[in-house]
């Protein structure tokens, strides 16, 4: 069966296939992260103490997650990711206004911010490893690394897709017909839906893991 790539809404669904497709994918992602959030609740409710491990410097039992994790770094990353969501939607708006240069700028910023997020994350992970702790150290760190690690994999995936559209994929716009330009704009919108979802997951991860 051939699924035609059209950016005009289908009469039966009211949306184009790419949009319905990405939303179905995001629905499955809700279950993927939802399952791990449930695991977090399970581990936390079953634990005698949370985070249930010693602090790195004073070696007393930590009573708050922020004695193990860096809230300032995570706050910085929250701001970075929110900003990248804004530049992502601005890159789409630029195409809607037929302004390719502005698209390149905003999409470039989105990619740089995402890379910045990963660099900060790497510093956080590095700090943990330098203290000789790993996912196996405690249930708290186990679920921390799984949730933030899976999220980081999603960020990496988003960077790859966005970098493709910033670079070689943009040929569709620069060398394309009016129809191809409409297709490219649709691709950016769909990639944006994924990227905003990655931001959305972090909006829940940040308070759940770092703050409470």
């Amino acid at each position: 069966m051939q699924i035609p790539y059209e950016v005009t809404p289908r009469p039966d669904t009211g949306v184009n296939n790419a949009k319905l497709g990405i939303w179905l994918f995001l629905a499955s992602e809700v279950m993927l992260f939802g399952g791990l959030f449930a695991a977090y609740v399970f581990l936390r409710m079953g634990a005698d103490a949370w985070p249930g491990m010693e602090t790195f410097d004073t070696h007393v039992m930590a009573t708050r997650a922020d004695q193990i994790l860096s809230v300032p770094l995570a706050t910085l990353n929250t701001v970075i990711l929110i900003a990248s969501s804004v530049t992502m939607v601005l890159s789409w708006a630029a195409l809607k206004m037929n302004n390719f240069k502005q698209f390149r700028l905003q999409m470039g910023l989105t990619i740089l911010l995402a890379l910045g997020f990963l660099v900060v994350k790497a510093f956080e992970y590095g700090d943990k490893f330098s203290h000789g702790v790993a996912p196996e150290t405690s249930n708290f760190l186990g679920i921390y690394f799984v949730l933030t690690g899976l999220h980081a994999v999603h960020v990496t995936g988003g960077i790859l897709v966005n970098a493709y559209f910033w670079g070689p994929g943009a040929k569709m716009w620069t060398q394309g017909s009016v129809r191809a330009k409409a297709h490219f704009t649709n691709r950016i919108e769909v990639a944006g839906l994924y990227w905003h979802f990655v931001d959305l997951v972090w909006i829940f991860l940040f308070p759940m893991i770092y703050l409470i």
């Binding site: 669904t13 949306v15 949009k19 319905l20 939303w23 179905l24 629905a27 809700v30 279950m31």
Partner: peptide, 12 residues
């Protein structure tokens, strides 16, 4: 957004 997207989200 169109209704079909809302239904996908309700399902999720």
């Amino acid at each position: 957004e169109r209704q079909v997207i809302y239904w996908v989200l309700v399902l999720a």
